[in-house]
Amino acid sequence: MNSTVLGYVASTAPASSLSGGFGGGRGGVPSLPLGVGDVIQISIFESQAGGLFIPSDAGSRPGNYITLPNQTIDRDGTISVPYAGKIRAAGRSIEQVQDDIEQRLANRAIEPQAVITKISSRSAQVAVLGDVNSPAKIQLTEAGDRILDVISEAGGLSAPAVETYVTLQRRGHTARVHYTYLTKTPSENIYVYPGDTVLVDRERRTFTAFGASGLNGRIDFEETSLSLADALGKAGGLLDSRADPAQVYLYRIVDRSLLKQLGADSPKFGSETSVPVIFRANLRDPSTFFAAQKFPMQDRDIIYVTNSQATELYKFLDLVGSVPATAGNVSGDSLATRNNIRAF
Rank of each mutant, 00 (worst) to 15 (best):
A264I: 04
A291W: 14
I278K: 13
T311P: 02
V200M: 07
L239G: 05
V200D: 03
S241T: 12
A235I: 04
S241D: 10
G263I: 01
E272D: 13
R204C: 00
K234S: 12
S227L: 08
S213H: 00
A235H: 02
K294V: 02
T273L: 13
S271H: 08
P296A: 07
S266M: 06
L232S: 09
L262R: 04
S287I: 13
N282G: 12
T206S: 05
A209C: 00
F210G: 00
A243Q: 02
R204S: 04
A281P: 05
S271E: 13
K268C: 04
F210V: 01
R300G: 00
A229W: 06
Q309G: 08
A246W: 06
V275G: 06
E203F: 03
R218S: 06
G214R: 03
L239T: 06
L258H: 06
S287T: 15
R252K: 10
T224Q: 14
Y304M: 08
R252L: 04
L226T: 06
P267L: 03
P276Y: 10
F290W: 13
R256H: 10
S241N: 08
A231V: 03
S274G: 09
F221N: 10
V254Y: 04
D285E: 15
V198H: 04
T311N: 05
F210I: 00
L250H: 02
S308K: 02
P296W: 10
G263W: 05
F221P: 11
Q261G: 12
R284N: 14
R202A: 03
M297W: 06
D201V: 00
F221E: 09
G263D: 11
L232C: 10
F289K: 09
G237F: 01
K260C: 06
G233L: 11
A292F: 05
D285N: 15
S227M: 07
V198Q: 05
D285M: 15
S274V: 09
P267S: 09
T224A: 14
S271T: 12
R202G: 01
D299S: 13
G237R: 00
F290T: 07
Q247F: 05
A291F: 15
N282C: 10
F289P: 03
A209I: 00
D255F: 02
S266G: 08
P245T: 10
T288R: 11
R204T: 06
F269Y: 15
I219M: 10
E222V: 10
T273V: 06
L250E: 01
S213E: 04
Q247C: 07
A292Q: 07
V275N: 04
S241M: 07
R300W: 01
D220P: 14
Q309S: 12
T288P: 10
V248F: 03
K260I: 07
S266V: 10
L226H: 08
I303W: 00
I219W: 01
K234Y: 12
A246N: 11
A264E: 15
D230S: 14
V254D: 11
K268A: 11
R242T: 07
R204W: 03
D301T: 03
D265W: 01
V305G: 01
V277I: 09
F289Y: 14
T311D: 09
F289L: 14
A212M: 02
I278M: 13
R256K: 15
Q298S: 11
G270H: 08
T311S: 12
L199N: 13
A246G: 14
S213G: 02
A291P: 06
S241L: 08
R300Y: 01
R242E: 13
